[in-house]
Amino acid sequence: MNQAASLRAQAETLGQSLPALLAEAEHLAATLMLGEHGRRRAGQGDEFWQYRPAHAGDPARAIDWRRSARSDAHFVREREWQVAQSVSLWIDSANAMRFSGDPARGTKADRARVIGLALAVLLLRGGERVGLSGMMPKPGRAQMMALLDGLQTEDSQDYGAADVTGMAAHSRAVFLSDFLGNLDVTEQAMITAADRGIRGVLLQVLDPAEEDFPFQGRTIFESMQGALRHETQSAGDLRARYLVRLAERKDALTRLAAATGWHYHCHYTGAPAQAALLWTYRALEARA
């Protein structure tokens, strides 16, 4: 089978699984029970947020006289900021994301797509504009269909490269990937984003086997595309060095996120997706 036919078959398989992924994502979003969305900042809007003591310079029309009458001080009634944010999702679809260390466990790509779609459900429900990288973020339930269409595209490379082209300045972004490829590519994307005022979240999705390295004896390690291959007679001897390299990669991602004003978190496909979704949602809101 040539590469074009292989990619077509992968796309058809993915297209058949997307409705199930959407159902799983909607169920996952529903389990969080976040209630009404709130940006928790003072600004233009209709919803009451808080009272604060009046300051010198506050206009008289800003004073809530009914609240002020109950004390010796004047208070200003603040409304919650309700300007919709644009959020772009980059969900890595490269070959490495199709790995699973256990046939009973879903792939990294499946988990990344479910979390990304569930996050989109929550954000769209809250009135935000959401899109995939390279797609115009839009509000509304109908946007979910556009997101599903966008997820049918497969990357033929072993490792994905985050794409920030087209992301609006001062918007928000979420990158979901294993981040095991060339870190320079990720670093350049984040520096470019930070220079344009884009802030967001790095969610690293790994399989438990990639954390535990449970290999012993003769083992053949091969990339998902087959371009890279390494055979060893004593895989257990590689474990210590591998774990050091993985820890170094996580530390590098943590430092990169801190330097650019982003948030980083590592999630394993063997763990429930709810915690990763909640963390991502809260981390994204912290920058809104």
Rank of each mutant, 00 (worst) to 15 (best):
Y264A: 06
F221G: 01
A259M: 08
Q233M: 06
A259K: 04
P208G: 12
A247I: 02
T254Q: 08
F221R: 01
E222T: 07
L256V: 06
T260Q: 12
H263G: 07
Y242Q: 05
P208M: 14
A235L: 05
L246Y: 06
F221W: 01
H263C: 08
A240I: 09
G236L: 03
E211N: 10
R239I: 09
G236A: 10
R229G: 05
L246G: 04
A227V: 04
T260H: 08
K250A: 10
L238I: 11
E222S: 07
D212N: 11
A209E: 09
Q204I: 14
Q204Y: 13
T232A: 02
A247K: 02
T260G: 03
G217M: 02
F215G: 06
A240W: 12
E210K: 11
Y264S: 04
G217K: 08
A259H: 03
R255Y: 08
Q216K: 13
K250G: 13
A257I: 01
R255E: 06
E222Y: 00
R245P: 03
G200I: 14
G261A: 07
E231D: 05
A257S: 07
D212H: 09
L253K: 01
F215K: 09
L228A: 11
R229M: 02
L238W: 05
A247S: 09
L256Y: 02
E231L: 05
E248V: 01
A252S: 14
V201T: 11
V244F: 07
L253E: 02
A259Q: 08
A258Y: 09
K250E: 11
A252C: 11
E210M: 12
L206A: 14
D237L: 14
Q204N: 14
A259P: 05
L228F: 07
P214Q: 06
K250V: 04
T232V: 07
G261M: 09
H230N: 01
V244G: 10
R255A: 11
R245M: 05
I220T: 02
V244I: 14
G217P: 12
G261I: 08
G200C: 15
M224D: 00
A240R: 15
L246C: 05
P208T: 14
A257H: 05
T232P: 10
L246Q: 10
G226Q: 03
D212C: 05
F213C: 02
A235E: 03
E211T: 04
R249D: 07
V205C: 15
